[in-house]
Amino acid sequence: MDLWDEGIFLLVLFLANTIQAVTGFAGTLLAMTPSILLLGPDQAKVILNIMAFLSSLFIVSSSLIYIAWRQLLRIILYMAAGMAIGVYLYQLLPLSFLLPFYGLFVLAVALKGLCTSNELRLSPAAARIILLGAGVMHGLFVSGGALLVIYAVAVFKDKHIFRATVASVWIVLNVPLMFHDYQQGFYDGQTLLLTGLSLIPLVLATYAGTRIHDKINQKIFMNLSYILLLLSGMLLLF
Rank of each mutant, 00 (worst) to 15 (best):
W4G: 09
E6I: 15
E6S: 09
L11M: 15
L11C: 09
V12D: 09
V12N: 14
V12H: 02
V12W: 04
I19T: 13
Q20P: 00
A21Y: 04
T23K: 09
A26N: 14
A26V: 12
G27D: 07
T28D: 11
L30D: 02
M32A: 09
S35M: 06
P41T: 13
M51T: 15
A52F: 01
L54A: 10
L57W: 05
F58Q: 04
S61H: 12
S63F: 04
S63R: 11
I67V: 14
W69I: 06
R70M: 07
R70P: 03
Q71D: 14
L73F: 13
R74Q: 11
R74D: 02
A80Y: 08
A81W: 03
G82T: 06
G82W: 03
M83K: 04
M83T: 15
A84M: 11
I85G: 00
G86C: 13
L89N: 10
L89P: 07
Y90S: 08
Q91G: 08
L92H: 11
L98I: 11
P100H: 03
Y102P: 00
G103I: 06
G103R: 05
L104A: 14
F105E: 03
F105N: 02
A108R: 11
V109D: 03
A110H: 01
L111V: 15
L111F: 12
K112S: 14
R121A: 05
R121N: 04
L122A: 00
S123G: 13
A126D: 01
A127Q: 07
I129Q: 08
A134H: 03
G135W: 08
M137Y: 03
G144W: 01
G144T: 02
G145T: 05
A152Q: 11
A152I: 06
A154M: 10
A154S: 14
F156G: 00
K157P: 02
D158L: 01
H160C: 08
I161G: 05
I161R: 15
R163L: 02
R163V: 00
A164M: 06
T165A: 01
A167G: 09
L173R: 10
L177M: 12
M178K: 07
M178I: 15
M178C: 03
F179G: 06
F179C: 11
D181Q: 11
Q184G: 07
Q184F: 03
G185L: 11
Y187M: 15
L194S: 14
G196E: 10
S198Q: 14
S198W: 08
L202A: 08
V203G: 05
L204T: 02
A205W: 04
A205D: 01
H213D: 01
D214A: 12
I216T: 10
I216W: 06
N217R: 13
N217G: 09
K219I: 12
I220N: 13
N223S: 13
S225P: 01
L229C: 05
L231I: 15
L235I: 11
L235H: 01
L236V: 06
L237S: 03
F238H: 09
